[in-house]
């Protein structure tokens, strides 16, 4: 009896938390615009009039991208810094999202990104990253 009452209270709290979360989605503005998410959802046959659920999908996607990016950033920071002579440039260590870091980060999320070894991102590829033009 006592246990049932406790679970009932817990359920009530959980319901309140869920309602609060859904209400907070109304005020939260995800980085990915609603219209864009709606377009992608409609392409996959998803149909929902509730803007909160569209925002929930947007938030989930945003979290996914942010997690991937922060993982790639950790990879980028963990790499040994290139030897540079200029002190000023060393201090201003550039944080560039590169294909290497991204593929390493994405591998942890079950996405295998493979790109050719000789793939040239830009004309400056192959040069020392520290000597690149800003």
């Amino acid at each position: 009896m006592n246990h049932g009452q406790q679970s009932g209270e817990a359920k009530h709290e959980d319901d309140a938390a869920l309602t609060e979360f859904l209400a907070s989605l109304m005020d939260y503005t995800p980085t990915i615009p609603d219209d864009l998410v709606e377009h992608f959802l409609a392409k996959s046959g998803f149909q929902c009039p509730d803007v909160r659920l569209i925002r929930l999908v947007a938030v989930a996607t945003q979290k996914f991208v942010a997690d991937v990016a922060s993982d790639a950033l950790q990879h980028c920071k963990a790499r040994p810094a290139p030897v540079v002579k200029d002190k000023k440039q060393q201090k201003d260590k550039r944080l560039v999202l590169t294909m290497d870091d991204l593929s390493k980060a994405l591998r942890e999320y079950g996405v295998n990104v493979k790109h050719p070894e000789y793939f040239a991102d830009s004309p400056s590829t192959g040069m020392d990253p520290a000597t690149r033009e800003e």
């Binding site: 944080l95 560039v96 999202l97 294909m99 991204l102 793939f119 991102d121």
Partner: peptide
């Protein structure tokens, strides 16, 4: 925290 990105990435 990224400052820039390769276009392919």
């Amino acid at each position: 925290g990224y400052k820039s990105a390769d276009s392919s990435a």
